[in-house]
Design a protein around this nucleic acid. Structure first.
Lengths: 334, 334
DNA sequence: AATCCAATGATCGACGCTTTCATATCTCGA
DNA sequence: TCGAGATATGAAAGCGTCGATCATTGGATT
């Protein structure tokens, strides 16, 4: 049992192959009568044009590759969802290419693999070192854009980015304004240089002329937030923490609670991302809301523009906003 | 600037086009010296075979389509990750095709779109009505498998499934054994028939000869769990709740807390899925652990077997296990 | 040294679709 | 009524790759 091809349709409709093609693509007028015959044949046979042949003939694909790290993380999954929605709208399919580590072999393998297929363009999720490496290895002839958090490493490529540096500074200032003498930071893994969130936190502390506590490094696992929180809990001087993301914030809060320090009475905690569960926490988490789905829409829009006009669009900046909930308050002594 | 083609490589290496093809595919012996020249040319030009031409010529793709609902939900995202890992291992790319609703138009569009590309096979995430509908519309010539939770609607297609019915019954019995007089259930959206989780819950209650409270219907949004929890909180007779998933459980627990009922002292709550954050809750959530990543591996294995041997593999059953943490305990009066 | 048999390289179509290009048909104004 | 222009349609030529068929070379055999 094989799928029907265009010749089968042509035969069934009693027309030539190109005529069928013209009806399907609607570029050239076809008489109403033949058009009807063709459409009827298409429906009857359940014909679906062969994408491989199609992209071979018009030397352009209708798929876009998304290079991403672990797709189960909230920010990644949401951004991909946004890209997929926008792509589907525009008639493109999304191919996921996971790049787990930034080493050359892994990156090359992923790119080779993806670009072995007929791709119209690529979106790189430049949220981690692997993304940065992938971006650096993109072949020049492939239209590509990047979604980033806090600026891109590659100025030649247009990108949509969350201004996390600005937002982190804002969140830090908010804590400072509440009366906290300083703010600690538990950082997510960096993209090679320091994460924009860390940079913004540092900016705010510097501008306020406040001492900078040492950065606590965590990985993507919420449990590493727990470990960081446990360390923080032992230091009575800690009254405010900016977490690199909500998962980490949750781990931190749990550790704090387990060590007898209450949130927000003893310690204020601010997260990052506005994870769907963060508002259901006790207390509800104050966090920096990131609209990743919209970021996905935007970055795909950039790519689409590039695909249609041929030249790159200027980058798009998105500003996350602070959502104040129950996990932050004035320090005891203020 | 255009990507190099095989003819460019042949010219650069001073050999014929088929020779390059043979070096690349390694089917027929080629002299060591020419082979070296070809490989050098490939590397230098950055040549990558055109997938469209390739799949057209050998009429088989190296991509597999995954039909899924909203990809940001934990179970979906994790399963897709598992599929992607296994597929990458085996040299396949994963194409995401989101089917948002079960209506014919949406399903047809998604399938048309995906199958327009050269697909080797398809995996359907049969976790919701949209998945069921997608499965029903799969063309017969495409090798397809399904990942399901609690049995598949289609006996002709091999599937890997979590035995949620069994697991839900087990979890319910666990609560009953703790001394609760009955167990309430907040259900996730069903797949057309009732969800396996609901069925298992009902099994356990029936077998125990215990009255079945009315089912509370929720959707995928954690906030709908909150609403359900608020309703439950008003009924003093409620001492145990089996939630359709962890997100819902979190919402329920929050509502319970907001209404002055403590967990687990007043009400025991059991979740489903073992979401990464559920152990960091206060109290840590007792839940039914589902290894979705492994489910993804398994279901891809099924597809791969089918692709290689041509005939379908028997279905694979996976048994989730109950993880007892802090959100459950004996009822006050027991 | 002549013949035959590997071993290896080159030529020649598919594959399914799009896209010139040429042809048949038709319309309309002079 | 006839020719020019417009228009629908068909024939043919790729798109980049792979597989089968042919042609060639070198060496081994007698």
């Amino acid at each position: 049992m094989k799928p029907p091809v265009i010749a089968d349709v042509a035969r069934a409709a009693g027309v030539s192959v190109p005529t069928v093609s013209r009806v399907l693509n609607g570029t050239v007028p076809v008489s109403a009568e033949r058009r009807a015959r063709v459409l009827a044949a298409v429906r009857e046979l359940g014909f679906r044009p062969n994408g491989a042949a199609r992209s071979l003939a018009q030397r352009t694909g209708s798929m876009i590759a998304v290079f991403s790290g672990n797709t189960t993380r909230y920010g990644y999954a949401s951004t991909i969802q946004g890209i997929e929605e926008a792509a589907r709208q525009a008639g493109y399919m999304v191919v996921i290419s996971v790049v787990e580590t930034p080493d050359a072999t892994t990156v090359e393998r992923a790119i080779d693999h993806a670009l072995g297929q007929p791709m119209a363009g690529a979106v790189v999720l430049e949220f981690d070192p692997a993304g940065v490496a992938a971006l650096a290895s993109m072949p020049p002839w492939l239209p590509a854009v990047a979604a980033a958090s806090g600026g891109s490493s590659d100025a030649d490529i247009s990108h949509a980015y969350m201004d996390d540096r600005y937002a982190a500074a804002q969140a830090t200032r908010y804590l400072l304004d509440l009366g906290h003498s300083t703010v600690h930071h538990v950082a997510i893994p960096s993209t090679g240089t320091e994460s924009a969130r860390l940079l913004g936190w540092r900016d705010a502390l510097r501008d306020a002329g406040v001492p900078q506590p040492p950065v606590i490094r965590a990985d993507w696992d919420p449990m590493s937030g727990y470990d960081a929180g446990a360390a923080l809990a032992k230091d009575a001087g800690v009254t405010a923490v900016l977490a690199g993301n909500d998962e980490l914030a949750v781990g931190i809060m749990k550790a704090l609670a387990d060590h007898g320090r209450s949130v927000p009475a003893d310690v204020s905690v601010v997260g990052f991302d506005d994870h769907p569960l963060s508002q259901l926490w006790s207390p509800p988490l104050t966090t920096v809301r990131q609209d990743f789905v919209k970021l996905g829409h935007q970055v795909f829009g950039l790519l689409l523009g590039q695909l249609e006009t041929g030249d790159a669009r200027p980058s798009v900046r998105m500003i996350p906003d602070l959502v104040v909930r129950g996990s932050t308050g004035r320090p005891r002594t203020a």
